[in-house]
Design a protein around this nucleic acid. Sequence first.
DNA 1: ATCATTTTGTGATTCTTTTCACAATAAATC
DNA 2: GATTTATTGTGAAAAGAATCACAAAATGAT
Lengths: 214, 214
Amino acid sequence: MKLTVSRLYKYRDTLIRFRQIGMVRVFSDDLAEDMNTSATQVRKDFSLFGISGNKKGGYQIHRLIIQLDRLLGKDKTHFVIIVGAGNLGKALMNYGGFEEEGFKVVAVFDNDPRKISRKGKIPVLPVQGLERFIKARELDLGIIAVPYFAAQEVAGRMTAAGIKGILNFAPVSLKVPGDCFVSNINVQLELETVSYFAKIMKENKKHSQQKKAL
Amino acid sequence: MKLTVSRLYKYRDTLIRFRQIGMVRVFSDDLAEDMNTSATQVRKDFSLFGISGNKKGGYQIHRLIIQLDRLLGKDKTHFVIIVGAGNLGKALMNYGGFEEEGFKVVAVFDNDPRKISRKGKIPVLPVQGLERFIKARELDLGIIAVPYFAAQEVAGRMTAAGIKGILNFAPVSLKVPGDCFVSNINVQLELETVSYFAKIMKENKKHSQQKKAL
DNA sequence: ATCATTTTGTGATTCTTTTCACAATAAATC
DNA sequence: GATTTATTGTGAAAAGAATCACAAAATGAT
Ligand SMILES: NC(=O)c1ccc[n+]([C@@H]2O[C@H](COP(=O)([O-])OP(=O)(O)OC[C@H]3O[C@@H](n4cnc5c(N)ncnc54)[C@H](O)[C@@H]3O)[C@@H](O)[C@H]2O)c1
Ligand SMILES: NC(=O)c1ccc[n+]([C@@H]2O[C@H](COP(=O)([O-])OP(=O)(O)OC[C@H]3O[C@@H](n4cnc5c(N)ncnc54)[C@H](O)[C@@H]3O)[C@@H](O)[C@H]2O)c1
């Protein structure tokens, strides 16, 4: 389910690129190839969400995007706050890609007075005002970009104020109430995992060379 | 397998925090709780990699960390390059967490002459020299932090030069040879997924309130 | 109009991951 | 030293995700 949803977003991405280069229709095959998956997977995902195409004719890109947009909530702007205006928080804040995808970062919060600034395009505010801000605007989405030891506290405050979805960059598992969804991006962990499998790749190569040599 | 490995790295993280606060032994329960998983999962993961503890006595943290270190290659320093010295590439480059975890960023590459600089702690070099650099140092690990339209080209050059593991931040699926492992961090996608499920959380709440009201 | 071809949509199957259930055993208690 | 208790380790079962296999339908060719 989670995996299907995230693939649906990726299909949409791919479809938008396809449309940009002038394509009008796609087959499940085309999507699969672009995304390194199988055509069956694509069709099963669509089928699960009641999306259908034409036998032999494939899918009309434009129509498909509209359907996905509605399904995935891409027809609205989503407002987001970031807590932590450090190295990473600032990179996220200045990243243009979010707005293009319908996410608007409305404010960043930090507990270091030196980081506070109401001047920029996106204000950086004292974290004291976090709850009030979230409640006043009925925000649902928050990004955590504080050090690991502060992450749980921030998550607690966010959820208490009504946040229902958290994207967490701190390398710890957050405890949140059952009505809040958390996704973790743990960069170190990903790099570690890559390094583990890179090593295996090298060893396999050695083995297969040994095999060849026999 | 992939999931087990990434959990092993997380167990290690947790164990190191536990050791820092003076703990000497843990039970599968403790690890599970800290990581939001089940005790059975922990033990099964360990069992899969031949790690064992004492019945009733649990696991000795120090010993366990040593075992994991060896298993996960944390007893060596891993050298990494980053391609793309933009917004994100710079944040990664300045991030202290990698070195702490045994990863050393040896160089960053960019194709924009204005980004080049040999002055800093980590040099930013012209991307022309990428292959030569990788080959000369027999590097295995690369991070891609270039725009989506440049990512495939960079991946191709990396793998051709011998890179065996790629951490990719560009929101596209890379085509790489079978002897290279890729892990994708797609921040937009994660945020989209969070927003999808956050919406569901809200709707569920409405429903359960309706149910209560009946 | 008929036939061959292409592509979808999905039930059945296989594969993977997680959870369950419980025997084995080390430590603590009586 | 026997008994109770806590905890591990793992085969078996369940749940979840991906793949297979093929019928159904749309299109194009003859
Ligand atoms: N920078 C990276 O490239 C990178 C890579 C991987 C992971 N991360 C993770 O992302 C998180 C942020 O990393 P960073 O490099 O930006 O760290 P950083 O130290 O540069 O920034 C953290 C910011 O959070 C603020 N902060 C601390 N406690 C707070 C609190 N209770 N409330 C509000 N603000 C608070 C600090 O004032 C600081 O501005 C960390 O958990 C880190 O492990 C960062
Ligand atoms: N910045 C963020 O917070 C963020 C968030 C999510 C995703 N991303 C993704 O990460 C990637 C980088 O984002 P960014 O914000 O740093 O972009 P950016 O434009 O700030 O930086 C990209 C850098 O790559 C360099 N570059 C372009 N083509 C190159 C090539 N062929 N070889 C070498 N260098 C090349 C550019 O000169 C530039 O310095 C993008 O794919 C983006 O979608 C970034």
